[in-house]
Nucleic acid binder design. Structure first.
Lengths: 133, 133
DNA sequence: CTGAATCCGCTCGGATACTG
DNA sequence: CAGTATCCGAGCGGATTCAG
């Protein structure tokens, strides 16, 4: 682990509440609830991947299938529906033949961008770490 | 939605790759993989909550149970084991009577702090949004 | 092309009881 | 106190087939 990271970790540790455990639990209740709320939305193997793709533009159903090579149509359609219900994704149907459907991030979906960025960064670093071992 | 947020969203949109979908998929492959790696680790209803608590100090098993009122002992012990295997959490046993076991974040666990922060922020905002509706 | 329908195994996660 | 053991249901998620 390099020094910059070690410093960073020390900085993080300094954020700690530094109280008896039961007091921490009491003071931290609201934040903990927030985390559980957030996790409920982004739960599932595919949701964040779909959102991350859509951060970069508009995609058709079949394009999303290409971007997520291992997803089954059942899952893709289910996850998209979930995301639409939660107001994160917008679905648009073009009345052409054959039918064309495109998905894009709703404005509300863009509020997840900072999270996506952190997730990506951590995932990249994590992979590096695993490779080293 | 307030103006500051709208501006933020516009800023995010400007990050977009702005290429044909299939090219985006190609260029974005590595990041997408990173997201899936990360999600695999933090997957599950309780993992991030446990890590978030441990960001604030050291907790005993029974204290964690108090902090996560709805978790069953089976889940708590399983999730803690997962986190330990992934090098995120450290487990320490004190040979007293009765036995005392404490859990704390490993250094590697602290690398998740930025993610926790974003998750918390988004969860708090999301809750506000839901309330308004 | 964009899914919906069906079937099925597996794991997640809860409830309860029990142990060193 | 810190878990383990056992049982169970619900839903995740894959594979395949079919429809508009």
């Amino acid at each position: 682990m390099d020094k910059a990271l070690k410093d960073k970790i020390e900085e993080f540790k300094s954020y700690r509440l530094d109280k008896p455990p039961l007091e921490i639990i009491e003071h931290y209740k609201k934040e903990l609830q927030a985390i559980q709320d957030a996790m409920e939305i982004i739960q599932g193997r595919w949701k964040m991947s779909i959102i991350a793709l859509l951060c970069n533009g508009e995609f058709r159903y079949s394009e999303l299938e290409k971007g997520l090579p291992k997803i089954s149509p059942r899952m893709l359609s289910k996850e998209l529906k979930d995301l639409e219900i939660n107001g994160l994704v917008e679905r648009k149907v073009y009345d052409s033949i054959p039918v064309k459907v495109s998905y894009k991030l709703a404005d509300y979906g863009y509020t997840l961008v900072p999270l996506i960025i952190e997730l990506t960064n951590w995932g990249l670093e994590h992979r590096k770490m695993i490779m080293k071992r």
